[in-house]
Design a protein around this nucleic acid. Structure first.
Lengths: 105, 105
DNA sequence: ACGCACGGTCATTCTACACTTACGGAGGTG
DNA sequence: CACCTCCGTAAGTGTAGAATGACCGTGCGT
């Protein structure tokens, strides 16, 4: 938890993940998201706030509506973070694979 | 939620994320993880089960102990999944950035 | 001006689930 | 053998937080 865990933790919720899937497809207004999801509009609003705080979405006021879209920067940061995760795990894996010769079951 | 959401949802929990961080560093036994974390050993065990079901860790019995390590395949799958996420969001972003005029659904 | 759709926030309820304690089995060491 | 450590699982509790309904402000159309 030394770094930006907010994004990962924000995506660790089914409804928020569903929201991000939709927004990754195309920007939407809050009411549109609420119509597509099995939760009320306030629930969507609160989830969007969490996603925004995590840097995963950006919003823009357009007349009456507020258009939310996935934030490429936030997603890129999350990807990089996961990359470090992954590469480090690979190092550790190779390490133990080299030093521990034959056991296997 | 059309694809493997289990990994993302599994990482969306502070303690499990902490466990994964440690395992990405180097493999550990359950008791070692429990010693480093502010939760009991059974809690760690239950989290490891979730992580295992999500394909994020693999375990191996070594004598008395059970060694858990991060699963590079699972992490790679998650990374790829996030990549698709990301690229699609970028597409949408460029799209709306190029033709900024108002669109309708 | 009025009515209406959109959306943020608050207060409240309620459920999922993280956590603990207690237990039993398996393996190691003397 | 006795005794220890390691670990998984079951049962039960407590709480974080997801969801709802209500309220209010705002922007648009007529």
């Amino acid at each position: 938890m030394t770094y930006r865990a907010a994004a990962l933790l924000a995506l660790g919720e089914p409804t928020r993940l569903a929201i991000m899937e939709r927004l990754a497809d195309r920007p939407r207004a809050v009411v549109d998201l609420a119509r597509e999801l099995p939760v009320s509009r306030p629930a969507v609003s609160q989830h969007l706030r969490v996603l925004k705080d995590a840097g995963l979405v950006i919003d823009e006021a357009v007349g009456n509506r507020r258009i939310y879209r996935a934030d490429p920067n936030g997603l890129a940061a999350l990807r990089d973070q996961l990359d470090r995760f992954w590469s480090k795990a690979l190092e550790g894996y190779k390490e133990t694979a080299e030093q521990s010769p034959q056991e296997e079951q």
